Computed example of a mutant assay.
Amino acid sequence: MKRRRAEEGGSSKKVIDLTSTKCCGKEVSLDVVNRSIERQKPLHGYMGEEDLTSVWSKHFPMSVLAEEHFQSKTDLELLGFVDDKTRAQFMQVCATRLLCVGRFEELKANSEAEKKKEESSWEQKKLELEKELEAAREHNTLKDKELLELKADHLQLKGKLQKLNKEKTELEARVVELCVQKKKVETSKEDHGYDMLAAGFERARKQAEFLFPDIKFDKLDPIKVVHNGALVDDDEVDLEGGGDHNLVDLSYICKNDWYCILFV
C-alpha cells in the first residue's frame, strides 16, 4: 500500500490507497519500492554546513551558479524565442529520457548484482564439486590400493594352491606306489609262506622215506587235505563249507607210526 498525504498544516488530509500490486500491467513489489526510496533519501535531502561547495549543501547558491554559468545572452535569446509550451515539452522530453537512462542504469545494476550473486553461487557449487571430486579421487585411490592388495593376495593364494595341488598329486602318486608295494608285499608274503610250507613238507617227506623206505609217499601233496576219507584240494573243501582239516590222519600210510602222525 502506498500512501500520499497532504502537508501536515493543511486544512484537509487526503489518503490515497493503491491496493493494486500492478503498475502498467506488471507485478510491483512494494518492498522493492520501499527499499528504493530508502536508498534515495540521502540524494533527495540536503547536508549541513560541513562543505559549502557541495551541491547537496543547503547553503549552496544554485541561482548564482545558474546566473553566472548557464544564463548567457545567446542562451537567453534562444529560450525567449520559443514559447512556454515548447519549453515545457522540451523539459518533458529531457525528463523522460533521464527516466529511461535512470531505469536502464538501475536494471543494469540489478543485473550485475544478480550476475555476481549467481557467479558466487556457481563458485560455491564449484568448490563443493571440487571437494566431492577430491574425495572421490581419494576414495578411488584407496580402492585401487585395496585392489592391488587383493591381486597380490590372489597371486599368493594361487601360488599356494598350485603348490598344494602339486603336493596332492605327489601324495596320490605315493599312495598308489604304497598300494602297489603293499600288494607286492602281501603277494610275496603268501609266496614266501607257500615256499616255506613246500620246503618243510619236502624235508619231512624225505625224512619219512629215509626212515620208512618200504612205504610209498607219492600220494602226499602239501596243498591237499583229507576230507570224507579222501585227499582233496583245499578250495573244494572251502566251497562245500567243509569241516576241520587241520588234523590229518595218515595212519593208513604210516601204519600208526607216531612220527608220521607228528609230521602230519
Rank of each mutant, 00 (worst) to 15 (best):
K2G: 05
R5G: 01
S12Y: 08
V15I: 08
D17N: 13
S20I: 14
T21Y: 14
K22V: 10
C23S: 11
C24Y: 09
G25I: 03
K26Y: 12
V28M: 12
L30W: 11
D31L: 03
V32C: 05
E38Y: 10
Q40R: 13
K41I: 06
H44M: 14
E49W: 05
K58Q: 07
F60M: 03
A66R: 15
E68T: 06
S72Q: 08
L76D: 13
L76Y: 04
L76W: 09
E77H: 06
G80H: 03
F81M: 11
V82G: 03
M91S: 07
C94A: 04
A95I: 01
L99A: 11
E106S: 10
L107A: 08
S111W: 14
S111H: 15
E112F: 13
E114Y: 09
K115W: 14
S121T: 04
W122A: 05
Q124R: 14
K126Y: 10
E128M: 08
L129I: 06
L129C: 01
E132L: 15
L133V: 09
A135Q: 13
R137G: 02
E138C: 02
E138P: 01
T141L: 07
K143F: 02
K145C: 06
K145S: 09
L150K: 12
L150G: 01
A152M: 14
H154E: 07
L155T: 08
L157T: 06
K163M: 13
L164Q: 10
K166T: 11
K166R: 15
K168T: 10
E170M: 07
E170A: 08
R174V: 03
V176A: 11
E177I: 03
Q181V: 08
E186C: 12
T187M: 12
T187K: 12
M196Q: 04
A199G: 00
E202C: 13
R203I: 09
R203S: 15
R205Q: 05
R205L: 10
D214F: 09
I215L: 11
D218M: 04
K219C: 10
L220Q: 01
I223E: 11
H227N: 08
N228K: 15
N228E: 02
A230I: 07
L231S: 03
D233Q: 08
D234S: 06
D235L: 15
G241A: 08
G241Y: 02
G242I: 00
D244K: 13
D244I: 01
N246A: 14
Y252M: 13
I253N: 01
D257K: 01
W258I: 15
W258T: 10
C260S: 04
